[in-house]
Simulated scan of single mutants.
Amino acid sequence: MDIKVLGTGCANCKRTVEMIQQAAQAKGVAVNIDKVEDIRAIMGYGILSTPGVVINGEVVHAGGLPTREKIEQWLHA
């Protein structure tokens, strides 16, 4: 599963990466997480507030920390 976390390196962006890694490990799901910090690349996804999360090319979240439950739903998709 290819996951991109979009953000300029703020605390919420870093925490989002950690939360996804922890949930994936707990569920035994293999993930490839890329951190996208380039503002032009982020804007290319139409994200106006970070962190944003893109899974397999689809924007699934933008702005604020996602909940653990939401992350677990992504990992089952």
Results as ranks from 00 to 15, higher is better:
residue 6 L to S: 02
residue 6 L to A: 09
residue 9 G to Q: 05
residue 11 A to T: 13
residue 11 A to S: 12
residue 12 N to P: 04
residue 12 N to K: 13
residue 13 C to T: 04
residue 13 C to R: 04
residue 14 K to P: 01
residue 16 T to A: 07
residue 16 T to F: 00
residue 16 T to Y: 00
residue 16 T to R: 07
residue 16 T to P: 03
residue 16 T to L: 09
residue 18 E to W: 03
residue 19 M to C: 03
residue 20 I to P: 00
residue 23 A to M: 03
residue 24 A to Q: 03
residue 24 A to M: 00
residue 25 Q to T: 11
residue 26 A to D: 10
residue 28 G to R: 06
residue 28 G to C: 07
residue 28 G to D: 08
residue 29 V to R: 13
residue 29 V to M: 11
residue 30 A to Y: 04
residue 30 A to S: 09
residue 31 V to S: 09
residue 31 V to K: 08
residue 33 I to L: 04
residue 35 K to N: 01
residue 37 E to Y: 00
residue 37 E to L: 08
residue 37 E to M: 10
residue 38 D to Q: 10
residue 38 D to P: 04
residue 39 I to K: 01
residue 40 R to M: 05
residue 41 A to H: 06
residue 41 A to K: 05
residue 42 I to A: 09
residue 42 I to D: 00
residue 43 M to Q: 03
residue 43 M to W: 02
residue 43 M to P: 05
residue 44 G to W: 10
residue 45 Y to M: 04
residue 46 G to V: 07
residue 46 G to D: 06
residue 47 I to W: 02
residue 48 L to N: 05
residue 48 L to P: 01
residue 49 S to Q: 14
residue 49 S to R: 15
residue 49 S to D: 10
residue 51 P to T: 02
residue 52 G to N: 08
residue 53 V to I: 13
residue 53 V to H: 15
residue 53 V to P: 10
residue 53 V to L: 13
residue 54 V to W: 08
residue 54 V to H: 14
residue 56 N to T: 09
residue 56 N to Q: 13
residue 56 N to C: 13
residue 57 G to F: 12
residue 57 G to A: 12
residue 57 G to K: 15
residue 59 V to E: 11
residue 59 V to G: 11
residue 60 V to H: 15
residue 60 V to R: 14
residue 60 V to Y: 15
residue 61 H to P: 10
residue 61 H to F: 15
residue 62 A to P: 10
residue 62 A to S: 15
residue 63 G to N: 08
residue 63 G to R: 15
residue 64 G to K: 11
residue 65 L to A: 06
residue 66 P to Q: 11
residue 66 P to L: 14
residue 66 P to G: 07
residue 68 R to S: 10
residue 70 K to L: 15
residue 70 K to I: 03
residue 71 I to S: 11
residue 72 E to R: 14
